[in-house]
Design a protein around this nucleic acid. Structure first.
Lengths: 150, 150
DNA sequence: AGAAGAATGCAATAAAATTGCATAACAGCG
DNA sequence: CGCTGTTATGCAATTTTATTGCATTCTTCT
């Protein structure tokens, strides 16, 4: 992982649809060398995957929310059970176990409030292991970066 | 946006490095038709961009944290100022204005605790507009999905 | 039923990725 | 130093893939 690899990773994190020859020019390498470096970065797992990022609004998921969750029981068993149920939900984009006053944080990508309501029913109310949950609706996204700075 | 478009979007959200002919097979279209659909999805902005997703640990950012921030002053001016400073930070992957007891939530991708400490100094302490902040270190990531379900 | 517009498949073409191979750069070591 | 095994590089040939023109089929609206 030298300077050129890092530069390639930065380019790919911004736009992975560019041609190899194009990026080769930018890092002053021949296309073949450039390609071999990128292939190595994939094989060694530095690059996990290449994906299309959709516009949430145009894909029908304009509403975002973050929910902090406090569980009643904190056993390994109960934790796993809660995460199993949460991660199975399509609307749950991210699920984290965290330190602090709460146990879990979920990031939701929702169609509308109706979906939020239904989701709360399934995950937080009734006979779930949830003691308390607290929702923050996202008003504005000032930054949303998939790239990891190198 | 019909069933085929949605299927293509799902495929691309999982793996955008597949060949066009390959995906065309999967949705029972000719390569040319498939390509034209994908191009349309890009042009209309449903597909925002195509990017490489790195393995955070292998890219040297193994530590994640979520920080909730309560500001002292909530004016448009002050809000924008805080977001400007926050979004300029490399370690800040996401920055949201939210409803609820706090004003802002930041998602951090950190190298180590030292970087966290330095970042707190710059964003939260001293002469900043921050009344209170609360950090949740991420212990476990149960789900981390870039795809938007369709 | 009929016409306009959009989507499709095929085949040709253009562009891009991939490979073999000879050469150059480099790290370890007597 | 100079030797040597290893790795990276560029070039050119080859293979694979994307892209386009065009005739046909499918949709939708009347």
């Amino acid at each position: 992982m030298d300077r050129i690899d890092r530069k390639l990773l930065n380019l790919l994190q911004r736009d992975a649809s560019r041609t190899n020859a194009d990026m080769a020019d930018e890092v002053w390498l021949s296309p073949s060398s450039c390609l071999r470096r990128i292939r190595r970065l994939r094989q060694t797992g530095v690059i996990d995957r290449v994906v299309a990022i959709l516009n949430p609004a145009r894909a029908g998921r304009a509403l975002k929310a973050m929910v902090t969750v406090e569980l009643k029981l904190h056993g390994e068993q109960q934790m796993r059970q809660f995460f199993d149920r949460a991660t199975r939900e399509d609307a749950v984009a991210q699920a984290y176990a965290v330190t602090g006053e709460v146990d879990v944080v979920l990031m939701l990508h929702l169609r509308d409030m109706e979906e939020y309501d239904a989701l709360c029913d399934r995950l937080f109310r009734d006979e779930t292991n949830v003691a308390r949950f607290f929702t923050m609706m996202i008003i504005r996204t000032a930054k949303n970066e998939t790239a990891i700075p190198l």
